[in-house]
Amino acid sequence: MNKKAVNEMKLSFPSYSENERFSRIAVSGFLTQLDPQIDELSEIKTAVSEGVTNCIVHAYRDTVGEISLQVRIFDKGRVYIKIRDKGCGIDDVEKAMEPLFTTAPEEERAGLGFAVMESFMDKIKVRSQKGKGTTVVMEKTLKTRKALR
């Protein structure tokens, strides 16, 4: 399982909401080398947008902090995405991942971010520590038409 990535990129940026768009477009730009299908790319962009927005809205609620985003491409079109913050952390990850659960209903949050990530990606893993931050790792294997290298 510990295979070497065929290609990878890392980004880090402050938790400004302007960077929501930037981050999903950066990921989609990086993945064009796999010649993905439009709907696969839309799904990944949406999942990235959910993860990054959660850092901005929840992790760094009243502050600005660093968000790091890592994308790795493995062979056979397997894509690995890691989104990490050093924000407030999540009390109960299992509960947070339940559809419609939100701690910010008054801000018109639907509580569907994790549900979207789960349904649009093949795998998702969330690690969080109260006061230390949260890491979301997602994977998806693209029905790529182009074998990379």
């Binding site: 999903r24 962009k45 947008s49 927005t53 018109e108 639907a110 569907l112 979207v116």
Partner: peptide
């Protein structure tokens, strides 16, 4: 051209 769960919140609101 793009919508995530923020769009769902928008309609619900």
């Amino acid at each position: 051209t793009f919508m995530d769960s923020s769009g769902i919140g928008l309609v619900m609101g």
